[in-house]
Amino acid sequence: MINANKAKKELAEKFGLDTERISVPRARRVFLEVPYAQFRQVLEHVVNGLKFRHLCTITGLDEGESLAFIYHVAHADGTVISLETRVPKAAPVLQTITDIFPDGVSYERELVDLLGARVEGLPAGNRYPLPEGWPDGQYPLRKDWKVGMLDGVK
């Protein structure tokens, strides 16, 4: 558990984070939560400072009033930091991380299509994964979305 606990300690000290909000549930897993204002700074340190160089994926969650995003970033030694942040659902705007992880583009497009996040700086390209002509404003992974909402949509 050396690396996970070391990462926890370093992140807590460097960014003045509450250690209650950083958990190490088992070997090689770190979960932490940061306000969005601090997110980019922490992510850059995780990638460049702590050398977590592989983006596993980005998970998006609908929490009612807000949308949460978890960036799962892995170290070559098998440790994964799950960096969670949230933005209000009324204005779900994120900055792209494709400048750090070019392969994050598919994961960010999923957040746009399935959860209705707005990702600023996302490179132009085809939408993913929903089809062309999918009705505007319908985001299937939001909790209030039901399959029936597609009835009658042409």
Binding site: L114, R127, L130, P140
Partner: peptide, 14 residues
Amino acid sequence: MDMRLGYNHRGIEK
């Protein structure tokens, strides 16, 4: 090469 994906998106996560 440009790609278009998602034709077989089945909504398994939902």
